[in-house]
Design a protein around this nucleic acid. Structure first.
Length: 172
DNA sequence: TGGATGATCGCA
DNA sequence: GCGATCATCCAG
């Protein structure tokens, strides 16, 4: 019963991502990231995100003066997946934010698996536990995210849903 | 703590 | 065309 139900959940529309990156990153916390591959549904609650504004963030790939093939997706329309391979062995799942023309993306650093645990564990080489998706590269591998998902629009095999009850954010 | 590993960026 | 960098993960 702990399984995630995409039918009852509300999928986040592109308008949700067409907002300030920092805000989207914060709002994404608690949301459910769902991935469907070969009819197998895997999903996890986003527990940690990192906002990458782009031009102002030196760590972002968009820190360069112009738009490169890699940052291209960042500058594109929101509500799309930006998959990036780093260290030659790990994929990073980013969600493009801001409206088209503005660079922005949110890196999903960690999620808590709620559905398709077996599939995730299987992809992780039989590993289990919180370490399944306790890291950027881990969650991408667990969800089966690869470079083929780069630039893929959300709503298909990859989508983000709002939790049944989003906790009231305490203003700090 | 350090190594592995693939792709990308900037410059000549 | 070459060298350097990268938002990490795993093993001992």
């Amino acid at each position: 019963m702990s399984s995630f139900d995409p039918v009852a959940a509300t999928m986040l529309a592109s308008s949700f991502f067409a907002r300030p990156t920092a805000l989207v990153a914060r709002e994404l916390l608690g949301c459910v990231l769902a991935r469907r591959v070969g009819g197998v549904l895997t999903a996890g609650v986003i527990v940690e995100t990192e906002a990458y504004l782009g031009a102002d963030d030196a760590g972002s790939h968009a820190a360069t003066k112009g738009i490169t093939a890699r940052n291209r997706v960042m500058h594109g329309p929101p509500g799309r997946a930006y998959v990036y391979l780093t260290y030659g062995a790990h994929h990073m799942l980013n969600l493009v934010t801001e409206e088209e023309g503005a660079a922005g993306a949110v890196l999903v650093r960690a999620i808590e698996p709620v559905a398709g645990l077996e599939a995730m564990s299987r992809r992780r080489g039989g590993r289990t536990g919180p370490e399944l998706t306790n890291g950027p590269g881990k969650l991408a591998a667990a969800l089966g995210i690869d470079l083929t998902c780069n630039g893929a629009p959300l709503g298909g095999d990859l989508a983000v849903y709002a939790g049944d009850h989003v906790p009231d954010p305490c203003v700090e």
